[in-house]
Structures are given as structure tokens and as C-alpha cells.
Amino acid sequence: MNIFRFAGDMTHLISIVVLLLKIYATKSCSGISLKTQELYVIVFLARYLDLFTDFISVYNTVMKLVFIGSSLAIVWCMRMHRAVKRTYDKELDTFRHYFLVLGSFVLALLLHEKFTFQEIFWAFSIYLEAVAILPQLVMLQRSGNVDNLTGQYVFFLGAYRAFYILNWIYRFFTEPHFSRWIACLSGLVQTAFYADFFYYYFISWKNNAKLQLPA
């Protein structure tokens, strides 16, 4: 594992901690898209079907369990916790995420490395992760005002994707048989979605102002 991959995993972890912190500390999930969070649950469950069949490392196994567990905990809080669910901005979170699930699954049936149960679900999870942030980004755009922790959450998620791209570039030059076009192309698409957000994030950071997205 190289430093970029590790930095990517850590920023991913930090993003989840920031989100949990926001929900637990403020007992509020305002500005957070439940649809994006539900998509992440599906992403992790579909991708980590290999938890019991392929062992890579203790690190990988622990991280997989953490990602599955934390994403389930977040959705549980937003749906079941009495105080938290009252703060959910349902009317701003109207993205039709079922189409993303359906589209990703059809794409996985067409484009995959091997026509096996696990490989189809792996490709599905990669495609779905690429678009899973869209309901959240649309929600941020709609509300315009982004609170601090929500902004940090999306920032760390984007940083995670950027580090993964550096990781692939590094692996491409250091490993003799590195080719994984499904993950890399989807990763590029996914990172591109963050470009707009990053632009406004850095402007607000530079001006030391509150993050605001144009309507």
C-alpha cells in the first residue's frame, strides 16, 4: 500500500467521523442527504461481499467492516433517532436515487470484469459510488448555505477520491501489470463531480468566509 492510498482511506474515514460527529454533537442531520447515505450502504454491502471469501489484509477487513457499520449507523440515525430525524430536510432531498441504482446495475450487467455474482456486484458498487454523491451535491446547491461540518464532510470525501487517483497514478508507474479501467474511469468521473464544490470551498477558505454555493 502506498502513501496516497493510505491518505485516501484516512480522509474517507475522517469524512465519516466528521459526519457522525455532526449528527451526535448537534443531534441534527440538516443539510445531509439521506439518499446519498443510503446509496453508500448499498455501495459497501455490494462491494464487500468478498469479506468472507477473499482475505487481503487485516487492514482491509477492518476498514470494510468500519465502512459498512458506520454507513448503517448514519442511516439508522437519520431514519430512526427521534431527535435527529426531525432535522432531516426532506423537501430538499428529492433526487430520484432509484434511477442511479437501476442505471448502475444495468451498467454492471453490461460492463464487468467477469460474469460472476461477485464481479457483477463489485462493478455495480463502483458505478454506484461514482454517482452516490449527486443527491448530496444537489441538496447543498438547493440550500445554498452550507454549515461548517457538512462542508468539511463533503470536502474530505472529495479529498479521498483525489488521493485515490494519485494512488492509481503511482501504481501505474510502479506495478508491472496494473490495469483496472473500471475502477479508474469511474473514479475519474466521481472526482469530477466534486470539482465545482472544491472551487467554491477554496474560495470561501481563501476569503475566510462561510461556504456558500450559487443557486
Binding site: 468478498d50 477473499d54 487481503i56 482491509n60 485515490y164
Partner: peptide, 10 residues
């Protein structure tokens, strides 16, 4: 590269 290692990322 073995199959298991093909998905060594998270």
C-alpha cells in the same frame, strides 16, 4: 496477479 488481489482497494 491473482484474482483476490484484483480487488485489493477499498
Amino acid at each position: 496477479q491473482s484474482e483476490a488481489q484484483a480487488h485489493d482497494e477499498l
